[in-house]
Design a protein around this nucleic acid. Structure first.
Lengths: 162, 162
DNA sequence: CGCTTGCCTGGAGTGCACTCGAAGTCTCTA
DNA sequence: TAGAGACTTCGAGTGCACTCCAGGCAAGCG
């Protein structure tokens, strides 16, 4: 169960036990260390680790932003290292202001399998262009701020002695 | 009337008619060109020029984000070049994600006069630090995006021929 | 004079991204 | 076995930044 997700290879499946190779591996990434050696985390552990609230994690799942999260026999969520990797990516994308709807779209593509590689690449490329432009804008504003701050600094120094 | 605002000098008072020098000029900036040679613009002209809606301009005024905007005898707004300069700054700050509340605070300080230079400088400096950090974050995500896009590109090329 | 256009106000509505509450179930420790 | 605490769902609430609406005034034109 739960091998519905398929990203090219990037998510570094990590630590515990033998896992089926979802895609024939032509790349492999060293797993970056996880808080514990396990592969099943409660929602509060994940909340702790990611800084998101448990509410938000459930909400992510509701809106389709999480690949199927495993459950215990009583219905409680158990997140895997793969899920944590996904959340790391989501956090990065959020940081750049990617709308949740776009991330959901991306998640859908991931769930849909390998046939969607091209579309995923396209989506990410478009977003990368956005980010580049945003950086340029921020740089522009930084210049204005520098200029203004200089002026205030000058005014202060002038009033201090002269 | 309407010389209640005082910024050190940066806002390049522009074009029409002699204006009282609000602060003794130790710097002067070349005025950047305005759509017309006038100094009184209707709300729709300003909307056109700034890309903001008339609604938003009124709302800015309501919440205290605009220095007093002049009115005709019938109560219609007439924006000055100075107002346009201010809106340019606001646009830049908005672009960096400065919360409206902070900009209102800054506007209050400007209205309060020269005694608030230090605090204004502080506010801008703090925001500049924010912006720098945001740029760094965006750069970080850009790296992740580059990496992912590479992977998708590789996968695509591999499936195309091999 | 009526019509259109542009503007005014105050307040309500929108969309996004959470964030929380209520009511009930399950798990763990003493 | 009892109680605390973590978990479940669904739906409602929050904060931000607009965005729009109703109802009305003022000016210009034929």
């Amino acid at each position: 169960m739960t091998v519905t997700q398929s990203e090219p290879v990037t998510s570094g499946t990590t630590t515990a036990g033998p896992r089926p190779a979802t895609v024939r591996g032509c790349h492999t990434r060293p797993p970056h260390p996880r808080p514990t050696g396990r592969d099943r985390y409660t929602i509060s552990e994940v909340a702790e680790h990611t800084g998101l609230s448990a509410h938000t994690l459930r909400w992510y799942e509701r809106i389709g932003l999480m690949p199927h999260v495993d459950r215990t026999h009583t219905g409680q969520r158990r997140f895997s290292n793969r899920d944590l990797d996904w959340l790391d990516l989501v956090a990065k994308l959020r940081l750049t202001g990617m709308p949740v709807a776009d991330m959901v779209r991306y998640a859908e593509l991931v769930r849909a399998g390998e046939g969607t590689f091209a579309e995923r690449e396209q989506l990410l490329t478009a977003h990368r262009d956005d980010v580049r432009q945003r950086i340029a804008e921020l740089q522009g504003t930084l210049d204005v701020l520098d200029y203004k701050i200089d002026i205030y600094g000058d005014a202060r120094r002038a009033s201090e002695r002269c």
